[in-house]
Design a protein around this nucleic acid. Structure first.
Length: 229
DNA sequence: GCGACAG
DNA sequence: ATCTTGTCGC
């Protein structure tokens, strides 16, 4: 899978230093706390690349806990940054913010495709986006970025901790969202805590591996892709 | 020095 | 993320 990826263009050291410094500052702004109130609306977002030089970000809003879709918008723009592991947010966040700005209904919390604090510097795209929007966020990723864990049981609902091997701190939870499918990695972003992130993720499952907010954002990304081509 | 590396 | 056919398992 991700073991023998062909070596891509080497990231510019100066750029990486700059971005690392920005994440260091942003890390100080990320807050862990329970939601102020039970959400009435939950958002979901996802980005895709119709062409190597363009990015399409989708934002959906669903009622909670009914999970009825109430709105879907997108933003299509030129790509400005390369993909560098650990710096994904700098490539996608700005365009996601542009999509968010088009919403008529403001979500009480946002489920982001990617990690929250389960990141080398605790600033995955979910945390980064939360700080930019000052809205509660948490991340749901399909692949691990950092940390160690033991495989959760094969049945839906089983959970194991994602631990930072260096500090021993809990940085996320590995959740089996469906029987016998690869688990999801859930971690809080900004203005959210682990218990809330996990609870909302479970509350958004509807028989598929992906919880509804991200599943619908994925679906509409595919539909909108036809419009921009 | 040797792995690992979200989307 | 994206490029892609057939195929295994419930």
């Amino acid at each position: 899978m991700a073991y023998f990826r062909p070596p891509g263009p080497p990231p510019d050291p100066a750029l990486v230093r700059s971005l690392t410094a920005q994440q260091h500052d942003m890390r100080q702004r990320v807050r862990a706390e329970p939601l102020a109130q039970e959400p009435r609306l939950i958002g979901g977002c996802d980005s895709s690349f119709p062409t190597p030089e363009t990015i399409l970000s989708v934002f959906v809003v669903l009622k909670f806990p009914s999970l009825e879709l109430v709105e879907k918008v997108y933003s299509y723009a030129p790509v400005t940054m390369p993909y560098v592991p650990g710096f994904l947010s700098f490539r996608e966040a700005d365009n996601v913010v542009q999509a968010f700005a088009k919403l008529e209904n403001q979500p009480d919390v946002i489920m982001v495709d990617g990690h929250g604090i389960a990141h080398p510097r605790r600033v995955g795209i979910a945390a980064h986006l939360g700080v930019l929007l000052d809205v509660p966020t948490f991340g749901v990723a399909k692949q691990k970025l950092t940390g160690s864990f033991t495989e959760p049981g094969p049945e839906k609902g089983n959970i194991t901790p994602l631990i930072d091997a260096k500090t021993g701190e809990l940085i996320g939870q590995v959740i089996r969202s469906k029987d016998k499918v690869l688990p999801l990695f859930v971690s809080p972003g900004h203005r959210c805590d682990q218990a809330t992130a996990t609870r909302l993720t479970l509350a958004c499952l509807r028989g598929y591996k992906l919880p509804e907010p991200t599943r619908l954002a994925d679906y509409w990304a595919e539909e909108f892709k036809k419009e921009v081509r």
